[in-house]
Amino acid sequence: MFFVYILTNRMHGTLYVGVTNDLARRVEEHRQGIAAGFTKTHKLHRLVYAAEFERIEEAIAAEKRLKRWHRSWKIQLIEKSNPDWKDLMTL
């Protein structure tokens, strides 16, 4: 399985869209700040959206599509499945 996910630092905060084949591992890497970059700089540790795909090509296409979306569309996507912006890794 492959996942497209969105991280944030708070409700309506900065958003990051990524793709991975191991969601738990990747979110933990972001939380530990293993790699310097956007998520470390902005302290994006809260998983607020994730979608599962069977093929990596599908996941990458979905990630690219989401990255092109307007911010308001991403917020609507998050709030459709996670209206309280809860951290999905702690549920």
Rank of each mutant, 00 (worst) to 15 (best):
F2A: 02
R68G: 05
A50V: 11
I34T: 12
P83L: 08
A59K: 00
E52Y: 14
K74W: 05
E58F: 06
W85P: 05
D22K: 12
M89W: 04
L7K: 02
A24H: 12
K67I: 05
Q32G: 11
D22P: 01
L44E: 01
L88Q: 06
F2H: 11
W73I: 10
I34C: 06
F38N: 00
R26G: 08
Q76V: 11
M1V: 08
Y5Q: 01
E52A: 11
E58Q: 13
E58G: 10
A61T: 15
F3K: 15
R26Q: 07
H30N: 13
S81N: 08
K80G: 08
P83Q: 07
N9D: 10
A62R: 15
W85I: 06
Q32F: 03
R65A: 12
A61F: 04
I56E: 09
V48Q: 03
I60Q: 06
S72N: 11
R25E: 12
M89D: 04
P83D: 07
H12Y: 11
G37M: 00
I78S: 08
R65E: 10
I78N: 03
L88Y: 03
G13F: 03
K67F: 02
L23Q: 04
L77M: 08
R71F: 05
V19P: 00
K64R: 10
F53L: 04
I75M: 05
M1A: 10
V4Q: 06
S81R: 13
K67M: 11
V19N: 06
I34L: 13
A62V: 06
L91W: 09
V27C: 15
I34Q: 10
A61C: 01
D84N: 13
D84A: 09
Q76L: 14
R65Y: 10
L66R: 13
L15D: 04
E54G: 14
Y49C: 05
Y49H: 15
T20C: 03
D84V: 13
R26I: 04
A59W: 05
M89I: 11
I56G: 05
T14S: 00
R10C: 09
R46V: 14
V17K: 00
Y16G: 00
D84L: 13
G33F: 02
R26V: 04
G13C: 02
A35Y: 13
A51Y: 05
K40Q: 12
T41C: 02
T90Q: 14
L7E: 02
S81M: 06
E28M: 11
T39W: 02
L47R: 03
A35C: 07
R46A: 07
Y5C: 00
F3D: 10
A62W: 08
K64Q: 13
I56P: 07
G33K: 01
W85E: 05
Q32K: 14
I6Y: 02
T90W: 09
K67C: 02
R26T: 09
W85D: 05
K67Q: 15
R71L: 05
T8S: 12
A62N: 07
A24N: 13
F53R: 07
D84R: 14
E28T: 15
A35R: 15
